[in-house]
Amino acid sequence: MSLELLRSAYGDLSALVGGLTPEEGWQPSGCAGWSVLDLTQHLLDDARRGLVALATPAGGPATTDAVAYWRSWQPSPEDDDSTAWRTRVRASVTGGLPHLAPLYAETAAAVCVAAGRADPGELVATQGWVVRAGDLLSTLAVEAVVHHLDLVAHLDRPGPPADGLAEVRRVLEELVGGPLPDGWDDATAARRGTGREPLTDADRAALAEAAGRFPLFG
Rank of each mutant, 00 (worst) to 15 (best):
34 W>D: 05
18 G>R: 08
210 A>T: 06
95 G>V: 07
43 L>A: 10
15 A>M: 09
150 D>W: 06
105 A>M: 08
124 V>P: 00
166 A>I: 13
74 Q>Y: 15
45 D>A: 09
62 A>M: 01
209 E>L: 10
83 T>K: 10
111 V>C: 02
49 R>F: 12
86 R>D: 15
169 R>L: 10
40 T>C: 09
14 S>W: 03
148 H>C: 09
58 A>Y: 01
144 A>V: 06
155 L>R: 07
159 G>Y: 04
130 V>N: 00
192 R>W: 11
138 S>R: 14
56 T>H: 04
104 Y>F: 15
81 D>K: 05
88 R>C: 06
18 G>V: 03
14 S>R: 01
49 R>E: 14
182 D>Q: 12
167 E>D: 13
28 P>Y: 09
25 G>Q: 09
32 A>F: 09
111 V>I: 04
178 G>Q: 07
127 Q>E: 15
176 V>P: 01
174 E>I: 02
103 L>Q: 08
11 G>I: 11
105 A>G: 14
51 L>T: 05
44 L>P: 02
117 R>V: 00
21 T>M: 06
181 P>I: 03
216 L>N: 10
218 G>T: 15
191 R>M: 07
121 G>E: 06
150 D>H: 02
93 V>I: 09
141 A>K: 07
185 D>W: 12
207 L>G: 07
102 P>T: 11
154 H>R: 06
192 R>T: 08
40 T>Q: 01
123 L>P: 00
177 G>M: 02
204 R>W: 01
102 P>D: 10
69 Y>H: 15
191 R>N: 08
75 P>N: 14
48 R>K: 07
20 L>Q: 02
58 A>M: 01
5 L>N: 10
46 D>L: 13
113 V>F: 01
70 W>I: 10
157 R>D: 04
95 G>L: 13
13 L>G: 03
138 S>T: 15
211 A>K: 12
121 G>R: 08
44 L>G: 07
2 S>D: 01
84 A>D: 11
43 L>W: 01
165 L>C: 12
39 L>A: 04
139 T>V: 13
25 G>M: 01
163 D>E: 14
105 A>R: 11
25 G>V: 11
89 V>D: 12
56 T>C: 10
214 F>Q: 10
199 L>H: 04
175 L>N: 12
136 L>Y: 04
209 E>I: 09
177 G>P: 08
122 E>K: 02
64 T>E: 12
165 L>I: 03
21 T>L: 10
163 D>N: 10
24 E>Y: 07
45 D>N: 12
202 A>F: 05
59 G>V: 00
98 P>R: 14
45 D>P: 02
37 L>S: 07
83 T>A: 12
44 L>K: 03
71 R>G: 13
